[in-house]
Design a protein around this nucleic acid. Structure first.
Lengths: 341, 341
DNA sequence: CTGAAAGCGCTAACAT
DNA sequence: ATGTTAGCGCTTTCAG
């Protein structure tokens, strides 16, 4: 059982290059003030020995880790079956990589996991945290803020009272919803329904608000609750058809919901978009392009949201500082026209 | 700009409890051989001070990190839109958490990322790596093996020549495929087609092998290439219908493919399962249960695969040791009957 | 511009 | 059973 070969230390490199540890350290960290010939010698020694700095030793003194935690509360499995999060993660990863930071993924499943995450964050293992808090009553965000780690939230946290400055990145859910509903209205539809998402998530609540912005207090029977899943969309669509048979357009809170609604519509013999126009939200390609007919929807640049979160975190917002941090940044959405509306 | 409050050290706890650092260390690390009253005092001091061990300092001496890297090559976006990986990740996360290990996620996008990952792994930041290598020609696995980090692969690596012992976890793709095809045959179908996955992934190749195990050298026209996507499934199904109009059963390489095939079948007016029976692979719930009709498929326990990978990694397979490591472990699959076959 | 030396916070012998 | 001590590998004043 070969013990893992002892990796060369700064000391070894220094010896080989015939300089002091300090000099090697300077070269390795790109500090200037070392004369060219020495730099060269050190470089070669590093190369020959295959030296790689010991991050633990470095962190011990610098108190930096070049690592950020991504915390995902995952009360439901669905969260994960959703390409949404995956895309965001990808954006985050790209940005972190570009800044030589590592991504530590913290998935939480329940109460005890929360404690664990809190401890980890408070333990100063990472330089910051990117947090996806999905529900209004999630205790996680509080825990995290108390941990005193610089944090950026994904999506506007529901508990933010607007006075404390949490930093978050969000899509313009409300504006996107407005645009969708206006488009429907522009098509001459007068009985425009909305199938909501789970209203304890701000994204769903905001989309509902956007709908109301345009529809005012139209027939409240036209608003029916879904849950961001195709099954929920089906259920809601049935209810809708039952309650308001004259519905001529549906704004679904997301593409998955729309796909369910579409199925029920087809089943019931309504033609889309001729009799009922349908719009989704997200522009999740594998879904939106595959529905029958292809889905008109509101696109949000999910990957960019991830990137931006990472950029914000790395770019400053001083540690533990409650002063001048920027607060929310919301990304624009765009309407993508396909066939369903 | 409040500097992040200096966290208490072992020293501080020791002082407060009136003992030596060593004793505190023992208590914190659960070593026995400390008398109860002292343990109690130390515990209280830890509590009062909110002490959390500095992982960097600890790693520096123990040379352990309680962290493992999860490396995902992601040449195509699809990988990620796929709930498959998400589920595996979840299994991994649970198992790691249970052993107090952190998950460092390394996403790679291209050649330069490979170098970065290699460096990271070689840099001894983690105690091991869990690697998803998707393609036969992926250079990543080689890099990783050279890094000398204990590694477990997700899915049988295609480049394994069978003599070197790589450790991997895989599903019984071949056996599952056999069971599917036999089921179709048992239904009395004689013209059983297969829509493959991308054959440079072992999972796809193995499923094809399983199909052949049962079908022998039936009409080769019945095998058509897909790519694990619904769109690929549609394309393949059209080709199939064109080439072999008498096809009476389809074994699709995965559920997504099956969903595409199903759509084309419906379009073309063939009744499923009466005229054409269809079986998928994966039992990806959001897909398999939502198709019309619900999909009969081969289930693999994806989350368990993830768990197992983590367990294997943590459970031993001595560092860098090329000797007596276990090699592949393959998990059984089960046929799930719904309506489509 | 370079080197010497002092720790960072912790664990693990080794004493007691 | 507990305390003392010597580093782990690195960065960073501080001298020279």
């Amino acid at each position: 059982m070969t013990e893992t070969a002892p990796r060369p230390t700064l000391e070894a490199v220094a010896a080989r290059a015939g300089v002091s540890r300090a000099t090697v350290s300077r070269v390795v960290n790109g500090a200037d003030g070392v004369r060219e010939p020495l730099v060269e010698r050190v470089r070669r020694a590093v190369e020959e020995l295959g030296y790689v700095p010991n991050q633990a030793a470095r962190s011990l003194v610098t108190r930096r880790h070049d690592a950020v935690a991504v915390v995902v509360a995952e009360p439901e499995t669905r969260v994960f079956a959703d390409p949404f999060f995956a895309l965001q993660l990808r954006g985050i990863s790209k940005e972190l990589t570009a800044h030589d930071n590592q991504l530590v993924l913290l998935l939480t499943e329940g109460r005890d996991d929360h404690a664990r995450v809190g401890r980890y964050l408070a333990g100063g293992h990472v330089d910051g945290a990117l947090v996806f808090s999905l529900h209004l009553d999630d205790p996680l965000p509080g825990l995290i803020q108390r941990a005193g780690v610089p944090t950026v939230f994904g999506g506007r946290p529901g508990w933010s009272d607007g006075t404390t400055d949490v930093v978050y990145v969000d899509s313009d859910n409300r504006g996107g919803a407005r645009e969708a509903v206006r488009h429907l209205a522009g098509l001459g539809r007068t009985r425009v329904a909305h199938i909501t998402g789970p209203l304890d998530q701000t994204s769903a609540a905001d989309r509902l608000d956007g709908y109301r912005d345009v529809m005012g207090d139209a027939d409240p029977g036209l608003v029916v609750r879904g849950d961001f899943t195709p099954a929920g969309g089906e259920r809601a669509m049935r209810e809708l058809l039952d309650r308001c048979p004259d519905v001529d357009a549906v704004f679904a809170a997301n593409d998955l919901t729309a796909s369910g609604a579409l199925r029920v519509l087809r089943e019931s013999g309504r033609r889309v978009p001729e009799e009922v126009a349908v719009i989704g939200f997200d522009d999740m390609l594998p879904v939106a392009e595959q529905t029958d007919p292809p889905l008109t929807t509101v696109r949000q640049d999910i990957e960019e949201m991830g990137r931006l979160m990472a950029r914000l975190l790395l770019g400053g917002l001083g540690p533990g500082d409650a002063g001048a941090a920027p607060t929310g940044v919301v990304l624009p959405t765009t309407l993508v026209r396909r066939t369903s509306a």
